[in-house]
Amino acid sequence: MDAMDSDLYRDILDFGHATPSWFQHVMEAWTEVGLLLFAVLFILAWWRARRGDPRALAISVLAPLGTGVAYVISEILKSFIVEERPCRAVSRAATSLIDCPANGDWSFPSNHATIAAAGAIGLALAWHKIGWLTVPMALLMAFSRVFVGVHYPHDVAVGLLLGALVVFLCVRLGARPGAAVAESMRRSSVGLFVWFAGPGERRGAHAAPINR
């Protein structure tokens, strides 16, 4: 299995070297740009949920929180598993397209893939119609880490699974209590809480006026 993964790593990295330089730069930048786009989408999802029901608001907040939890778990796993980066460990491989991370910055699992998957699934749960965008974004971000030569394929595959699972559990377990908190914030006398939670659904906004 290790040999197969190393062979796939070499094949993907060789493919990266065969692409035009502008494409290599795009793939190098995409991971960081993708994370920024996820951050913007988190804000938009929260702002949109401010006019939704309390559960929708709770999920929009749990999505980035769950992503943060997934990142922390991936960092903890790195410190226990201690897998060397393929750009140093795989023999007969082409040079990585970006600088190989410093020794001690371990490879498994991929933090970027974990964050990408958690962000993609969290956003899809908070804003169903956007899943068609966020899931391909996450897959491309994960692939880019192998493409530039700093992760094995299994690093990003496990990172994707880890991020998706953690954010799903965070939303599943936290949606009900989070909705109760959101409802309390909307009824609070503290202006900041009310602003953060938003007005919620405006029921009856189009109802007929009451006769006087």
Score class of each variant (00 low, 15 high):
1 M>V: 12
9 Y>Q: 04
12 I>K: 01
21 S>Q: 13
25 H>Y: 05
31 T>A: 15
32 E>A: 12
33 V>M: 15
35 L>C: 02
35 L>K: 04
37 L>W: 14
38 F>H: 04
46 W>C: 07
50 R>T: 11
51 R>H: 10
53 D>Y: 10
62 L>Y: 07
63 A>N: 05
64 P>E: 04
64 P>L: 02
70 A>P: 07
71 Y>R: 13
75 E>K: 14
75 E>V: 13
77 L>W: 02
83 E>A: 07
86 P>M: 04
87 C>H: 08
87 C>T: 13
89 A>S: 15
90 V>Q: 02
92 R>L: 11
102 A>T: 15
103 N>E: 15
104 G>T: 12
108 F>C: 08
110 S>A: 15
115 I>G: 10
121 I>V: 15
121 I>W: 07
121 I>N: 03
122 G>F: 07
126 A>E: 10
127 W>T: 05
141 M>E: 12
142 A>D: 02
142 A>C: 09
142 A>I: 05
145 R>V: 04
149 G>K: 02
154 H>M: 07
156 V>K: 03
158 V>C: 14
164 A>K: 04
169 L>T: 14
173 L>Y: 09
173 L>R: 12
179 A>K: 04
179 A>T: 01
184 S>L: 01
185 M>E: 09
185 M>L: 14
187 R>M: 07
189 S>V: 02
193 F>V: 00
193 F>C: 10
193 F>Y: 02
194 V>S: 12
195 W>H: 13
198 G>C: 09
200 G>H: 11
207 A>R: 11
212 R>S: 14
212 R>G: 14
